[in-house]
Simulated assay, not measured.
Amino acid sequence: MFKLTQGWIGVLLVSLAGSVSAMESDEIQCLSASRSGLVDLPFPVDAEPLVSVTERLVIPLPVDEAYDRFKLFPLTQFMTGTEDLAGVARTHPLVGQDYLNTGERRAVCLKNGFGAVEELVDATPPGRFAYRVWAYNVPEAQGIEYADGEFLFKPVEQGTEITWNYSFSLKTDRFPGSFGAFGRWLFSKTFLESTWRGYMQLALHNFESSL
């Protein structure tokens, strides 16, 4: 009788261990949230005004090839990080698998252990690739409501011009957004035009160096 009971206990423990492992693997650790919870996370409502910055890069490739190479370039190799801002360590698909089609969503985990959620809002080859980022848990980003990134691909004489527009919507109940126009100006001067621009420039350099 004891051996039979011991056998059933063993099966039960193995089953429970499997369930715990499944729960652990379902959690996106950098966001301390489950995949299902992040899938159901509401998409941010559009808010104005935005604070924006733009960077450009010209590469010697036709626009179709430039777009195709860009969309397949791993985010971990694109956003490698700077001394001031952590790079991307890994991504986890939430909706879709390849992050190539409008509506697909993924969790982005940074090298500092924090993360955010990103959704593709437009993928129109070979002209536009745009996305929205939100649900930051990075302590320094708690004043950000969401960010919009947009890549535009235009044929030029030298090949393709890539324009990267990046805009932030700031929370109005937290600094610096709570200071209105002055807060947005301060955010632009102390972060967007310096720290974040350098992050973007390095990312574009990483892509250019891969060609």
Score class of each variant (00 low, 15 high):
residue 1 M to L: 10
residue 3 K to I: 14
residue 4 L to H: 05
residue 4 L to W: 06
residue 8 W to F: 13
residue 10 G to S: 06
residue 10 G to W: 06
residue 11 V to H: 12
residue 17 A to D: 07
residue 17 A to W: 09
residue 20 V to D: 07
residue 29 Q to W: 12
residue 31 L to G: 02
residue 32 S to G: 06
residue 34 S to W: 01
residue 35 R to P: 01
residue 43 F to C: 05
residue 44 P to S: 04
residue 47 A to N: 14
residue 53 V to G: 11
residue 55 E to G: 11
residue 56 R to Y: 14
residue 56 R to C: 12
residue 59 I to T: 09
residue 59 I to E: 11
residue 60 P to N: 15
residue 63 V to H: 07
residue 64 D to I: 11
residue 65 E to K: 15
residue 68 D to E: 14
residue 69 R to F: 02
residue 70 F to H: 03
residue 71 K to S: 08
residue 72 L to F: 12
residue 73 F to C: 08
residue 75 L to R: 06
residue 81 G to N: 00
residue 82 T to S: 01
residue 83 E to V: 05
residue 86 A to P: 09
residue 87 G to E: 13
residue 88 V to M: 09
residue 89 A to Y: 12
residue 92 H to W: 12
residue 98 D to M: 08
residue 102 T to W: 08
residue 105 R to D: 04
residue 106 R to V: 02
residue 108 V to Q: 02
residue 112 N to R: 04
residue 112 N to K: 00
residue 112 N to W: 01
residue 113 G to E: 09
residue 116 A to F: 14
residue 119 E to N: 10
residue 119 E to R: 14
residue 121 V to K: 06
residue 125 P to G: 07
residue 131 Y to F: 09
residue 137 N to M: 08
residue 137 N to W: 06
residue 138 V to E: 10
residue 142 Q to W: 11
residue 142 Q to C: 11
residue 147 A to V: 00
residue 153 F to L: 00
residue 161 E to F: 01
residue 161 E to C: 01
residue 161 E to Y: 01
residue 163 T to Q: 03
residue 164 W to H: 01
residue 170 L to F: 12
residue 171 K to A: 15
residue 172 T to C: 13
residue 173 D to Q: 09
residue 174 R to M: 15
residue 178 S to W: 07
residue 185 W to C: 13
residue 186 L to M: 15
residue 190 T to W: 10
residue 193 E to P: 04
residue 199 Y to C: 06
residue 200 M to C: 01
residue 203 A to F: 03
residue 204 L to M: 02
residue 208 E to Y: 03
residue 209 S to N: 04
residue 211 L to K: 00
